[in-house]
Design a protein around this nucleic acid. Structure first.
Length: 206
DNA sequence: AGATTGATCCAT
DNA sequence: TGGATCAATCTG
């Protein structure tokens, strides 16, 4: 008998952000697009925790961009970074406490998609999914497929690209499966264009 | 209105 | 190490 999908709920995400982040390692991210599903095991995430966390976008206040972080848990926060890449987050905790988990890396059919920009390219995630509800199993959601981490499998590290955040940059709020380190090196030497890898369309010149 | 910036990636 | 590339944000 076919086992039922366990889609992660609003209740799941409405918890302390670091706990959600740690717990998301080993869960699956599922993207439904073009009549099919692409899914990958989450192997790296980062927690961004509230208005005082200088690395969290919401630390600069509630703006057009960060407004979604102040909303309910389980909603997508997708933004454009460096003019060319997208980053996927899922909002956590109670409303008015702006926080989220950044999804940094997944494994699709054993292939490591390492980096938030590459991940969004592979799953065709862009700002059209900003504010999407990730708890309804519509176009993007999270699933528990029963993966249980062994002792010592979860590594904690400083977050990437947030040196400007002073003491907050030292928080060990990046979590990664230790076992992916080796395959990360292998994958990096691979030429690009592998399965599930969406090429950027050619630039349009007038 | 103009200037600056960035939770990245890739080539050198 | 530096360039790509642009929306949001900041500054005057």
């Amino acid at each position: 008998m076919k086992s039922k999908r366990k889609i992660l709920s609003r209740t799941y995400f409405n918890r302390p952000t670091v706990a959600v982040a740690r717990s998301l390692i080993g869960k699956y991210l599922v993207r439904a697009i073009d009549g099919r599903e692409i899914s990958g095991k989450i192997v790296e995430v980062e927690a961004y925790v509230g208005p005082k966390d200088k690395a969290c976008h919401a630390s600069k206040g509630r703006t057009q961009r960060t407004d979604v972080l102040f909303g309910q848990a389980g909603i997508a926060y997708v933004y454009l970074i460096y003019g060319m890449y997208h980053c996927l987050n899922v909002v956590t905790e109670q409303e008015e406490f702006p926080s989220a988990v950044l999804i940094r890396a997944i494994e699709i059919d054993g292939e490591l998609i390492d980096g938030p920009g590459r991940l969004c390219r592979a799953l065709k995630i862009d700002r059209g999914l900003n504010r999407a509800d990730l708890t309804e199993g519509e176009s993007l959601w999270f699933e528990d497929r029963g993966v249980v981490l062994k002792r010592g499998e979860l590594g904690s590290h400083a977050r990437i690209g947030v040196d400007y955040a002073g003491a907050w940059a030292k928080k060990l709020w990046r979590f990664r499966l230790r076992s992916v380190s080796a395959s990360a090196r292998a994958s990096r030497t691979k030429k690009q264009g592998g399965a599930g890898f969406i090429q950027r369309p050619p630039a349009i010149s007038d």
